[in-house]
Nucleic acid binder design. Structure first.
Lengths: 140, 140
DNA sequence: TTGCGTGCAAAGGTTTTGCATGGCA
DNA sequence: TGCCATGCAAAACCTTTGCACGCAA
């Protein structure tokens, strides 16, 4: 389904590998560059961006833009359909992304649709706050 | 309360004026510049950004970064305290920001805190989707 | 062999910073 | 008067684009 059109290059493979291994995190193009450089397989920024664009286009990767950050973040999507059916929690301290499958949360959608006339797109909506680990710690 | 520290300059006043007059919309630094220029009171970009930073810092203005846009958007916040106590809906089509006072929504906080160990910060969380007006129209 | 993918370098746009000047308090 | 805010220009950043070469199919 997901037309991964294009050649299989080593650069593409390593880039996707990295994204898959970090699918629980948001990653910037810069971080990808750092990683590829650190393993001795540097890839030009232009290529990184071009591959990311392609992956986003194909729906394999999601692009996030986070308030306060000037650069975009990318994240591998395990299962495209699945992530349309739940919300995400994002910890502002450690950056962890939590996939939240919870029926109670899905009630929000219908409630807001019915009572407030607004159609929420869960795949685009992220709850910001503090995860259990970070909330326990004193905030500097 | 809101320490509006700093001098009262005409530039600052005009900038804030514009933001207040457009508090139902998000505005980019570029649009602010265009406006100030159009009324014959151009202000340097550096000053615009510096004032915006200060306003964001003071909580008077919120900064948004939206997918697909390369530049940040800013929006005046009517009442700082009030906005900590409700969620926001943001229409991805027309950009309208809706302040949602709804007890049902606030239940989410306690539910997620208790069952998922995550403390949501409503003031930082925005629901993205389509407002009634835009959802009804055919999407081009 | 064909043409897509890559790398490099340059361009583009947004935001930040340095420094001298001007204006508020 | 003292210091903060401003303006200009340059720099810093992130991302995109042009072009020639190399590699996958």
């Amino acid at each position: 389904m997901k037309k991964d059109s294009g050649y299989n290059t080593s650069q593409k493979e390593k880039l996707l590998d990295f994204l898959i291994n970090n699918k629980d995190k948001h990653t910037s193009a810069q971080e990808i560059d750092n990683y590829l450089r650190s393993v001795g397989s540097p890839v030009g920024m232009a290529t990184i961006y071009r591959q990311l664009d392609r992956l986003v286009e194909a729906g394999t990767v999601r692009k996030f833009v986070i308030d306060g950050k000037t650069s975009a973040c990318y994240q591998y999507i395990e299962n495209e359909k699945e992530c349309h059916e739940h919300f995400h929690l994002k910890c502002r301290s450690c950056g962890k992304l939590i996939h939240l499958n919870c029926n109670k949360l899905m009630d929000i959608n219908s409630h807001i649709a019915e009572h407030h006339g607004f159609i929420i797109d869960p795949s685009q909506t992220v709850f910001y706050g503090s995860c259990a680990d970070c909330a326990g710690l004193s905030e500097e």
